[in-house]
Design a binder for these strands. Structure first.
Lengths: 195, 195
DNA sequence: CGTCTCATGTAAGGAGTTACATGATTTA
DNA sequence: TAAATCATGTAACTCCTTACATGAGACG
């Protein structure tokens, strides 16, 4: 259900086509929520059916059309309601730690590769999120700039602050994962050399 | 697919019924991987069909039977292969941080409740995992004791060490989440009082 | 005129959730 | 003998993934 609200949040900035939205999901939003276009297009139609969006056929080139979706008052209300509703935490399901718990069954070489892959993955994420924070701080993030232009002056500070806070949390988590995997590498070495 | 390997890992200790396994998923394994019995029973049948397990009908009470599953050589091989295969990291999909990114749309009261719920959730997890580590260290964890009894002496140390390492990682992550949400509470306060 | 971008789907299947459903056995 | 535990499912549904599919417009 989160996909629906991620789409609503993006559409509060400006009307967009499914294609526009799917591009946003590849860049900015993708750092928090991923969705392929095969999921976005049907969901937009369902949201229009549910009255959260209106779709307008606008001309594109001489012989073609595209559908631009605009959030409705009901859509804004639904988004606000979701924002005020407590989140339900889903049950633990963590493939990385499941595998880590049985690392003695892996070859030491493979065990090291797991830890190194974990470090690499979270290092990359950490850099992407840091770059995002930099964009947010310097006012060079396109979506944030558009959003702030529509936001009353009194709310601009919090709008920016919460986005930075979000990415700081993701960076902190990535950092913790990196440190854990580094300890893992040391542990594998120590268990491997001294049997 | 991880469910399959979680089941295989449990069945390396001893043969079990679907019910036994579903109990394990409610206690020990559930701290890393959750699965309801409606998922476990069909998966066990598929695994038997695929030759990873053999199911044996054993009597239970005077008029009843139960199916006990035993891992096969092919099952052990499949588990080892999975352990030596790099993990594919799935795309970001994080409802907590998605919501955090738009916290300005929530009432300050609801925003605080989100952060507090995050703190509460991860505090509980942290305690459960700490209790698990205590069990692992003191030799009072049933599954680990049974596993160690079947493990050659030379491998016992790593078997225990990797499990402790796994839960330490989960605790570290929970701690990071708690600290982030605490910073969130302060941020909400500061944005709320000084507009 | 070819390639890249814009634009929008369908279809099959895997994984997981929730609800519904039943009945035997053990234990207090 | 009632309650808790053991035992095993089915069925409908949501969400997501992967693969397949098509075509117009813009740009060089």
């Amino acid at each position: 259900m989160s996909l629906r609200y991620a789409l609503l949040a993006l559409l509060t900035v400006e009307p967009m086509t499914g294609y526009d939205l799917s591009k946003r999901f590849e860049s900015s939003v993708a750092y928090v929520w991923h969705a392929p276009d095969s999921q976005i297009y049907p969901e937009l139609r369902r949201m229009e059916r549910d009255g959260l969006l209106t779709g307008e056929e606008i001309p594109w080139g001489p012989n073609s059309r595209k559908t631009q979706y605009r959030i409705t008052a009901a859509g804004i209300a639904a988004l606000r309601e979701w924002m005020n509703t407590p989140l339900e935490y889903s049950r633990e399901r963590d493939p990385v730690h499941l595998k880590a718990a049985y690392l003695e069954l892996a070859d030491p070489k493979a065990a090291r590769a797991h830890m190194q892959a974990h470090i690499d993955y979270h290092t990359l994420r950490r850099e992407q999120w840091a770059a995002m924070i930099n964009e947010l701080r310097t006012g060079t993030n396109v979506m944030l700039s558009k959003r702030l232009a529509k936001t009353p002056e009194s709310d601009r500070q919090r709008t920016t602050a919460y986005k930075i806070f979000t990415y700081e949390g993701l960076i902190a988590r990535a950092q913790t994962e990196i440190e854990w995997a580094q300890r893992g590498l040391k542990l594998i070495d120590s268990l491997d050399e001294a049997p």
